[in-house]
Design a protein around this nucleic acid. Structure first.
Length: 188
DNA sequence: GAGACCAGCAGGG
DNA sequence: CCCTGCTGGTCTC
């Protein structure tokens, strides 16, 4: 799966003019119900979260992460089409590139980008990710950054485990295990 | 700028 | 198992 990135610094968003509209909608992925947000113009994915409680609170969470932006419900099945592409593209050559918009600090964006190089169906450790970005002692900071990732599944934070067996996940460990199980079936 | 918070890790008990 | 020290980025005051 080919992924292209746009980035926006979190500091800039607080003060600046990026009040673009966000197109959002829901999708029932194999491992759980998700809410997805896209930039209205070029359909870059800026939000991919699990609906842990209900749809309403999921929308509120999205809004609180992008307080300057106006949410518009997806009426064109755009999100559904993108998701179908993602989940049905069993590494065929026709797979369209996926565009992701990351909002965070320089460090967070560096960490999140590093995660996509972890092969599907495998896991690694926070320590390993810290080494990947050449900050081998920053394991704890790396874990912090991973915990703030807002693009579930596509930024594969679920593939990172504690070296000493600790296993945590923003939306709940069950989701983490579900994704890994799903990826296991994809790879085989 | 100080101090607290963490999805870490190793080492000792 | 729990406790301690070391760690670096972020958040709060």
């Amino acid at each position: 799966m080919m992924i292209t990135f746009q980035t926006i610094s979190s500091d800039k968003y607080k003060t600046d003019h990026d009040k673009f509209k966000i197109c959002y909608g829901f999708y029932d992925a194999p491992f759980g119900r998700c809410i997805i947000g896209l930039t209205n113009e070029d359909k870059a994915i800026l939000h991919f979260a699990f609906v842990v409680k209900n749809d309403k609170t999921a929308v509120e969470n999205l809004q609180s992460l992008w307080p300057l932006s106006e949410l518009v419900e997806d009426s064109n099945h755009t999100i559904n089409n993108i998701m179908e592409d993602i989940f049905n593209s069993n590494n065929n050559k026709e797979a369209k590139p996926i565009s992701i918009l990351l909002k965070g600090t320089d460090f967070q964006i560096e960490v999140w980008k590093a995660l996509v190089s972890i092969p599907e169906g495998t896991t690694t450790t926070y320590e390993n990710v810290a080494q990947m970005i050449n900050k081998p002692k920053a394991t704890r900071a790396v874990a912090n950054a991973i915990g703030k990732n807002c693009i579930a599944y596509l930024i594969p934070c679920h593939r990172v485990m504690g070296k000493n067996g600790s296993n945590k996940y923003s939306w709940g460990v069950e989701y983490k295990q579900n994704i890994l199980a799903y990826e296991g079936t994809r790879v085989n």
